[in-house]
Simulated assay, not measured.
Amino acid sequence: MRRIVELTINGEPRDMTVDSCRSLLDALRDDVGLTGTKKGCDVGDCGACTVIVDGEPVNACLMLAVEAEGRSVETIEGLQPSVDVLHPLQDAFMRYGASQCGFCTPGILMMAKKLLDDNPRPTDEDIRFGLSGNICRCTGYTKIFDAIKAAAIEMEAARS
């Protein structure tokens, strides 16, 4: 059964016509064309598909698109404030070499954004806990942690 879902994606009101059993991940990628959110394991274990729904991180592979009715969804495409300016997390990930293959990066960036929104001065333990649902097979996490801490400092300086 197909259904129209009204929601907000990256600040823009959208309508999607989806099958009632379609995941939010598949709807975002295939129906809306926002392919930055990655399909990793498709069972909620890897975190590559992390998006933020009404301010909370969600594995988009585990959420049905119809469950997004009336909600606000932020994807990796919405993280960058403008075409010419990267989000401090994106910039720090580039400067610190925090991604290698890059497959996990969108999900990790979205989790890191939520972490820094809630905790602007995270410790290593805070970051470890905050990213616990996101798996990176390439970097060993050290550069990811360094980038998140650098972005936190930059974001705090910008708020001052």
Rank of each mutant, 00 (worst) to 15 (best):
C61P: 08
C61R: 06
N59T: 04
P106S: 08
I148F: 07
D31S: 08
M63T: 13
E156Y: 02
R22G: 01
V51C: 08
A158Q: 14
C46S: 11
C21S: 11
D42I: 10
T123F: 03
G33K: 14
G33Y: 13
E77F: 05
T139E: 05
S160E: 13
E154G: 08
V85G: 00
T139L: 04
A147D: 11
G33D: 09
D30L: 15
A68R: 06
D117F: 03
S82R: 11
M155I: 04
P106W: 03
G140S: 07
D30K: 13
P122F: 12
A147Q: 04
L25M: 14
T75N: 05
S72H: 14
Y96L: 12
D118M: 09
S23G: 10
M16Q: 11
A92M: 05
N134P: 12
T75F: 04
D117V: 11
N59G: 02
M63V: 13
M1T: 11
G78E: 00
V5Q: 09
N119G: 01
L79V: 02
G55R: 13
S20H: 06
M63Y: 07
P122R: 09
V73K: 01
L86T: 02
T75G: 03
F93C: 01
L131Y: 08
M16N: 04
K38E: 10
I135Q: 07
C46R: 08
M1L: 02
S23R: 12
R95K: 15
T105K: 05
T8Q: 14
K113P: 02
V43Y: 12
P106M: 06
T37R: 08
A48Q: 01
I76Q: 00
R22Q: 15
I108G: 05
G107W: 08
E12H: 07
C104L: 10
V53F: 08
V85P: 00
P81W: 03
C136I: 06
K149G: 00
P106K: 04
R95Y: 00
A68Y: 04
K114T: 12
S20R: 14
E74P: 01
R71C: 12
V43T: 14
R137E: 03
D30M: 11
I144K: 09
K113S: 06
G33R: 11
N10D: 15
G107D: 07
D91A: 14
G107L: 11
A150C: 06
A48Y: 00
A151I: 01
R71L: 13
Q80H: 03
C101D: 12
G40C: 13
V66W: 14
G11Q: 11
N119S: 07
R3V: 15
A98I: 03
S23T: 15
A112V: 13
D30N: 15
T35R: 14
R128C: 00
D26C: 06
D42A: 15
A151G: 06
A151H: 02
M94A: 09
N10S: 08
S72E: 14
E56K: 13
C41Y: 13
G102S: 10
R2W: 02
L86R: 03
D45F: 09
G40K: 14
R128L: 06
D124N: 15
R159F: 02
K114E: 13
L64S: 11
C138W: 09
L7P: 02
R159Y: 03
A92V: 01
I153L: 12
Q90W: 10
E56V: 06
A150S: 12
E77R: 05
